[in-house]
């Protein structure tokens, strides 16, 4: 199954960027990181922690009326790289179906050559966020 179209678009964009452009784009993703909706603010316990990240990251998935899945992520502003990466996943996956989300390979980002801009440790965190998104999506779809 191909990647969700929005995610594929992001992957293609990054593939053609220089290292500097990648960093700038990550910064703009970090700066447009959506605030956590009010209803989750006090409900961190309902969200899933992502222990692979060195930063405290929590996420939750919700099923929309059309069956699409939407993710909400909480991550402190002191961690712009993690915010940027999580924002890429939210932008690329939000609205996709459970099937589409589950079929995203864990190494889908290799063509983006993010390792030019981001340390391997962070990419492990990135994979961690994706894995936890999949788990949350399964849960949300069954609710």
């Amino acid at each position: 199954m191909p990647l969700p179209p929005k995610l594929q678009e992001i992957v293609d964009d990054f593939a053609g960027m220089t290292r500097e452009e990648k960093l700038e784009t990550l910064i703009s993703y970090a700066e447009t990181f959506p605030p956590l909706p009010e209803r989750f603010r006090e409900a961190r316990t309902k969200m899933q922690p992502v222990p692979e990240c060195m930063t405290p990251v929590f996420l939750v998935a919700e099923k929309q009326a059309d069956g699409g899945i939407v993710f909400h992520v909480d991550c402190p502003p002191q961690s712009p790289t993690v915010r940027g990466l999580a924002s890429i996943l939210m932008n690329g996956l939000n609205g996709a179906s459970l099937e589409e989300i589950l079929s995203v390979p864990s190494d889908f980002f290799l063509p983006m050559k993010l390792d030019e801009a981001v340390s391997q440790q962070r990419l492990n965190g990135f994979m961690g966020v994706l894995a936890h998104m999949k788990q949350s999506a399964v849960k949300a779809a069954s609710e």
């Binding site: 700038e24 700066e31 060195m54 930063t55 712009p80």
Partner: peptide, 9 residues
């Protein structure tokens, strides 16, 4: 920094 993007922000 641990998070190198902080400087740019």
């Amino acid at each position: 920094d641990e998070d190198p993007l902080l400087y740019a922000i």
